[in-house]
């Protein structure tokens, strides 16, 4: 097992003429809860997609647990995208079968008990479920794994404040404590309390990466206040890149 869980070196991603990430270098350890913070279009989703293998960087290198992105890293990463990814004919239990087949770290019993506590009936067809219920199913799939790295892309963006607490609580009570959780969001005040580290992403570059305690001590203000100060000029209405 590699000491560093994530190593990005001079990562750049360009879409045509547009640069989404520019020279991002990043190291993440284990057992951390990391906030990937930045306004809309700052490159959060791009970075997460590169880590889980949905995008190839234009330049630079990525290692997860010491290995390049491939089947091994995918087997230890649990990814929550910012959209629904299943076909409608399936039931939640079909998805549990699929996850149990492909991911050795998927805990079916845990998934069933999470469904019970979230009020989801896993034998229902996804077609008949509301958008909110589908999101819960997806959260169950992701958090019922004992993954090394959880990549959660805007898990609380589209829901009301009460549901935010609910989702955060589900994440915090279910993640593998030896693993690292990376949560991307622009809603910092909601998650600041649970973060160990914060990464500020601005125009595709990391402008700050430190522990939350250090930030508070050094700046004399909360991460949320600092974020607002730095990104004041930006529209921080959220959404994926």
């Amino acid at each position: 097992m590699n000491e560093l869980l994530v190593t990005c070196t001079a990562l750049t991603k360009r879409y045509g003429g547009k640069t989404a990430l520019s020279g991002v270098s990043l190291e993440l350890g284990r057992g951390r809860i990391v906030g990937l913070l930045g306004p809309n279009g700052s490159g959060k989703t791009t970075l997460i997609k590169i880590l889980c293998g949905l995008l190839q960087p234009t330049e630079g290198a990525v290692l997860v647990d010491g290995q390049g992105i491939g089947p091994y890293t995918k087997s230890i990463i649990s990814y929550l995208p910012d959209r629904m990814y299943f076909s409608d004919w399936m039931k939640a239990t079909d998805l549990f079968d699929l996850f149990a087949d492909f991911y050795r770290d998927f805990d079916r019993t845990k998934a069933m008990s999470m469904c019970a506590s979230l009020g989801v009936t896993p034998s229902d067809r996804l077609k008949t479920m509301s958008k909110g219920t589908k999101e819960k199913v997806q959260l169950v799939l992701v958090m019922a794994r004992k993954a090394q790295l959880y990549l959660l892309d805007e898990p609380i963006a589209g829901v009301d404040p009460a549901a935010r607490d609910f989702i955060l609580n589900t994440i915090l009570t279910n993640y593998n404590e030896e693993g690292t959780v990376m949560i991307s969001t622009h809603l910092i005040s909601d998650i600041e309390q649970v973060l160990d580290e914060a990464i500020f992403l601005k125009d595709g570059q990391i402008t700050l990466h430190d522990t939350v305690d250090n930030i508070r001590e050094r700046e004399g203000k909360s991460v949320d206040a600092l974020f607002r100060e730095i990104f004041r000029a930006h529209n921080i209405e959220g959404g994926a890149f």
Partner: peptide
């Protein structure tokens, strides 16, 4: 088209397969 290049692709391309 839908399974690998649409939204379902988010699931299929993050499975530990080539």
């Amino acid at each position: 088209f839908k399974g690998l290049l649409g939204d379902e692709g988010y699931l299929m391309h993050t499975l530990p397969v080539k």
